[in-house]
Design a protein around this nucleic acid. Structure first.
Lengths: 203, 203
DNA sequence: ATGATATAATTAACAGTGTTAAGTTAGATT
DNA sequence: AATCTAACTTAACACTGTTAATTATATCAT
């Protein structure tokens, strides 16, 4: 009865192929400029075949974003493993977050801007990869407080403040590439550094 | 020869009417879900009439965003007039910026996310209203340094860090309304407060 | 191997999109 | 009143996401 398994594997492969094509096109042309027909052309199937594997275009976006978040999560978890001073780990995590966004700018926007716009409410539901990424940040902050690097601040607030800071600088650098920014790394480092300094000095 | 002036005024009025309809629809339905035909229906003209007043849909978006930026600039300039302690003014400006974004979330996204996506490069050109908004921020920071509230930090870097912080928190609150945020005002105030505290403590 | 069956993929179609070119109407000028 | 010109509309093109009906294909039982 190996045929059924083979068929199942083939289905998965085609699904993966569609996903890859979609990601490449979304990234290079932008979500709204990519048509189902373009994706179909790229994989050399008819447009409607895609609908046998994904409910609609938004579902395709969803899957692409989930992959992106898994990538980001991997990058961050790797950092955690190289155990360091907790504040240093937090700092490096922030930097890694921004650099991830700048390395895959379109993926980042797709995930953190386009997707929430196209499916409101389902931004960061329980058990999702997105939640796991934020949980990572919570942990990092907790660790800093536990080891008394920070005063007894509210973990949740602090994590959210950190997220806002890195999210902000990431999106600005992506969306306004022609703005006269100071040197990019200086800007990123300063954003992170000052957010953390403000934290130490805070109540 | 008053007829020509009258016609000119009528043209401006219709252009304004189109702009208003476009803004209302963009805001309520989202830029990509609004068709030229929908706008035309709203103002009870044929779709193609719009093209006599705006080059294309992107130009319409452009004009809407410019209005938004003017509104934001007004809000901020008003704050400057009620002269206060400079750090306090900076703090209030940050708060006003975020609140503006939350009051008109779709306008904000249109201006600071959607528009740069649809016309790359022209994000913040010389003489634009966007540039004026950022110049306002530069001034606020300068004032703080001049009056020795901050150490001798780099104005440009500091202004950009501030922008990143408020931009980040604004977008997160808009895009992930269902995320378990801490109390909204606490989050906003903490973002601003800690950015400024980090500044004082910094080199 | 052949016919039946289930599944995968396709074609055709619908209602909608931004936009252009050609045509029409209405108001001002002579 | 006839002409001209600016304002507006109609018709059309090439595209979009998506559904329903249809065809091809590969697996199964005989």
């Amino acid at each position: 009865m190996g045929t059924k398994e083979r068929r199942a594997k083939e289905k998965k492969q085609l699904q993966q192929k569609i996903l890859l094509a979609a990601r490449e096109l979304f990234v290079s042309e932008g979500y709204e400029n990519v048509s189902m027909r373009k994706i179909a052309d790229k994989i050399e199937y008819s447009p409607t075949t895609i609908y046998l594997y994904f409910r609609d275009k938004a579902a395709l976006l969803d899957s692409v974003c989930k992959e992106t978040l898994l990538n980001l999560l991997n990058t961050l978890e790797q950092l955690k493993r190289e155990k360091r001073e907790p504040v240093e780990t937090l700092r490096k995590s922030g930097k890694a977050y921004v650099e991830f966004g700048l390395k895959y700018p379109q993926d980042y926007k797709l995930t953190f801007v386009v997707r929430p716009q196209f499916q409101k409410g389902l931004g960061l539901q329980e058990g999702s990869v997105g939640e796991k990424v934020f949980n990572y940040l919570r942990e990092m902050v907790s660790e800093c407080i536990l080891q008394k690097r920070f005063p007894q601040v509210n973990v949740e607030t602090t994590a959210q403040v950190m997220w806002a800071a890195v999210h902000g600088v990431t999106l600005l650098l992506i969306d306004f590439p022609d703005f006269p920014w100071v040197e990019k790394d200086e800007l990123i480092d300063t954003v992170i550094h000052r957010t953390i300094e403000g934290l130490k000095a805070s109540t």
